[in-house]
Design a protein around this nucleic acid. Structure first.
Lengths: 148, 148
DNA sequence: TATTGTTATACTCTATAACTATA
DNA sequence: TATAGTTATAGAGTATAACAATA
């Protein structure tokens, strides 16, 4: 009896566009993750990127990554172990631990970003100037939409 | 001594565009995942979506999801347990197990897709017709690029 | 022998609960 | 007391290695 069900694609109007945009973005994101990263796990990359903006406490990191403090404590411990992140005591509040990027950590982050960008760039080189302009305009729109 | 390093954004030219596109797509993808999904884990959703296209063997599923057969075996076992996927023996080759979507699985998949699309659509409603056209054109370009 | 799928075992990233130190 | 961080323990999801069944 159970021969399996097939489901078609839905939609019309804005919902249809939402569907297409979402799928395209997820596909790009997935491919970039799969094919350009090796030595640096996604959650580690993410933490290094946060610390590249500015030093933060463990709780701040946990909140902006939306994971629990114990989980972040582990992730940070691994990054300290490899020498990419430095721990420091807060001079004013003895409970706080300030995490910051080391020179080595910054180098790893830059290298990883470059690797991801190169992978993407290789695929954009075949596009016409007009197509590139469309992509550039679209990214601006998406950024604005996501900032809402 | 270690006061932490700050890293700026890189680039120019196609690399710059690649960087922007990649970041925009990852941000959209991340937000959609965070804010629209609950009952269905990402890897489960992914498998249901594969089976919605057509029934597949375990090995095929493992390959297109790029995980090991034992891992896929587990994931599938959970989906069979909930009644969203059906197992069947291949009539021609006794070694094969054919996995397919059940009616319930199809319903869950449709509901999840709708939920993700609605979340995205809510954010696109404020855009002008021209901005929407730009996004539509951009998704076509990205689809073509990713298909390379 | 080669292939498909499962079981055994382990590692990583996540969580909650309990603990320590500081405010 | 309340807060920041760590340690203890457990639950997913991943992997490799070894095994059973079929070609």
């Amino acid at each position: 009896m159970e021969e399996g069900v097939t489901v078609g694609e839905p939609g019309s109007d804005v919902v249809r566009l939402a569907h297409d945009v979402r799928l395209a973005c997820m596909r790009v994101s997935r491919r970039v993750r799969f094919e350009s990263s090796e030595e640096l796990a996604p959650h580690q990359f993410s933490v290094l990127a946060r610390l590249a903006v500015r030093a933060r406490t463990l709780k701040e990191l946990a909140e902006c990554e939306r994971i629990s403090p114990p989980s972040m404590s582990r992730t940070v411990a691994a990054l300290v172990e490899t020498g990419w992140v430095a721990r420091a005591d807060d001079p004013d509040d003895g409970r706080l631990v300030v995490l910051s990027l080391t020179e080595e950590g910054a180098a790893v982050l830059v290298a990883e970003r470059a690797k991801r960008d190169v992978w993407m760039a290789e695929r954009l080189e075949s596009l016409s100037p007009q197509e590139r302009a469309t992509l550039a305009a679209a990214t601006d729109i998406l950024e604005a939409v996501m900032a809402q």
